[in-house]
Computed example of a mutant assay.
Amino acid sequence: MTDVLAAALHRAAAHQRRFETRFAAYFDSLTDPAAGGTLDAPPHGRFPARALALVRELSLRGGKRLRVALLHEAAALVTDRPVPGLDTAALGIELLHTHGLIHDDLIDGSAERRGGPSTHQTYREEFPDRPDTALALTVLAGDLAAFLAVRVLLAGDLPPDRALAMAAVAADAGADAVNGQLLDLERDFPPEPDTAFLHTVTEYKSTRYSILAPLRLGLLAAGADPAPHEAELRTYATALGTANQLHDDWLDLFGDPAALGKPLGTDLRSGRRSYLVRALLAAADPAELRTLHAALGAPDHDQDALAPIRRIARAHGIDRTLHDQAARHAHRAAALAAAWHERWRPEAAAFFTHLPAWSTTRDH
Rank of each mutant, 00 (worst) to 15 (best):
L198D: 00
H120Q: 10
Y236V: 03
G63N: 02
R113C: 08
R11Q: 11
Y123P: 02
E125Y: 11
D249V: 09
V55W: 06
R81N: 12
P128K: 04
F197V: 15
D363I: 14
R114Y: 02
A338G: 10
D285Q: 09
R65Y: 06
A222G: 01
L260S: 03
D252P: 00
H247V: 05
G297R: 03
D157K: 11
F197Q: 14
R187I: 14
T2H: 12
R67Y: 02
L296M: 12
R56L: 05
D143G: 07
P191E: 08
E232S: 13
P190F: 07
L215R: 04
H247R: 08
T291Y: 06
L9T: 01
P214N: 06
H301P: 00
R18A: 13
A13N: 11
D256R: 05
V201I: 09
D3G: 12
T122A: 14
L91E: 03
G100H: 10
E203C: 12
E192V: 15
W344Q: 09
R311K: 13
D176S: 11
G63M: 05
L153P: 05
G100W: 02
A231N: 10
G174F: 00
P191Y: 02
L246N: 04
G156D: 12
L215I: 04
A330G: 05
D249G: 01
R162Y: 02
L9I: 00
L253C: 06
T238D: 14
A295D: 06
A90R: 04
D176E: 13
T133D: 11
R320N: 13
W358L: 09
L96S: 04
L292S: 00
E342D: 15
G180T: 07
L355H: 05
P346D: 08
A339G: 15
D300I: 11
I312N: 09
A294F: 06
V83S: 03
D40W: 10
G255T: 01
A221Y: 06
W344D: 05
E112A: 13
R162Q: 13
A171R: 06
F127Y: 13
L182Q: 11
R151C: 04
A170Q: 13
L101G: 03
R290T: 15
A339L: 14
N244P: 07
A335I: 04
D285R: 07
T360N: 10
R81F: 07
A34P: 02
P128C: 06
A258W: 07
L268V: 09
E112H: 11
A145I: 00
H99T: 03
H293N: 10
R124A: 12
G62R: 02
A146P: 09
A76I: 04
A239S: 12
I211F: 12
W358M: 05
V201G: 00
P191A: 06
A35T: 08
R208K: 15
A227N: 03
Y26F: 15
E192T: 13
D28R: 12
R17I: 02
Q16I: 14
